[in-house]
């Protein structure tokens, strides 16, 4: 029962970014991922999130190898992995209100309307988003508030694994602590495995159980 990257080699248009990288995240544990800029941390996260197909190597989810990436992976498998991006601004559709943003994954997978409503209310409550904020569009909220909404969206499917790609870098200290607390709580409840990509040694030390180095 692991999210595992097996000897991943990946890149973009012939430019190789990762070579033979392996990494695993067990349920319930928090793994840190550290490395200099441009070493391929984000690419590894995208590969693990099944959004980028490696040239060689593969990702396995709870022992089952996953083939392909993006839409070629069935939605039931894609939604087992949650993803939190560095820039909440870039990661949210500017046309949607925060409510729609959080509800989007549930709507996309055809959940009934009332289930979605209660789930969105619960997620908003946990991430500290007030009804006033929920009605707003991304341009009308701060980065911190938007990242909370993105966290709520990432948790909407109760993912077995959550990948945070420098997700707290842009946030102020209190929001950072709150985001981390919400993730830790989810971990306790559902034994979610978490991968934290960060440059911040203090954050990694405080939050993670072990840190992997990417060169």
């Amino acid at each position: 029962m692991t999210l595992q990257a097996h000897a991943i080699t990946a890149g973009y248009r012939g430019r190789q970014v990762l070579s033979e990288v392996s990494l695993s995240v067990e349920p319930g544990e928090t793994v840190g991922l550290r490395g200099p800029s441009g070493c391929g941390k984000s690419t590894l996260v995208r590969v693990l999130a099944l959004l980028h197909e490696p040239t060689t190597g593969h990702v396995s989810l709870d022992g089952t190898p996953v083939t392909g990436a993006r839409h070629r992976v069935p939605p039931q498998i894609r939604t087992r992995i949650g993803l939190l991006f560095q820039s909440p601004r870039a990661a949210s559709d500017p046309r949607l209100s925060l409510t729609d943003l959080i509800a989007e994954p549930l709507r996309a997978t055809g959940h009934p309307r009332d289930t979605i409503e209660t789930r969105v209310a619960e997620l908003a409550d946990r991430t500290g988003l007030t009804p006033d904020l929920l009605a707003r569009q991304p341009h009308a909220v701060s980065d911190g508030q938007l990242q909370r909404a993105c966290l709520a969206r990432a948790l909407a499917h109760r993912p077995a694994y959550l990948l945070c790609d420098e997700a707290t870098t842009m946030l102020d200290a209190s929001t950072q602590a709150h985001v981390a607390a919400v993730i830790t709580e989810e971990q306790h409840h559902h034994n979610m495995g978490v991968l934290v990509v960060s440059h911040d040694p203090a954050l990694l030390k405080r939050w993670t159980t072990r840190v992997e180095e990417l060169i």
């Binding site: 099944l50 839409h71 894609r78 949650g82 991006f85 870039a90 990661a91 559709d93 994954p105 969206r153």
Partner: peptide, 13 residues
């Protein structure tokens, strides 16, 4: 754009 990635990761067809 990352929000398209987010939609795909969220299970959108």
């Amino acid at each position: 754009r990352p929000f398209i990635d987010a939609a795909i990761a969220g299970g959108a067809s």
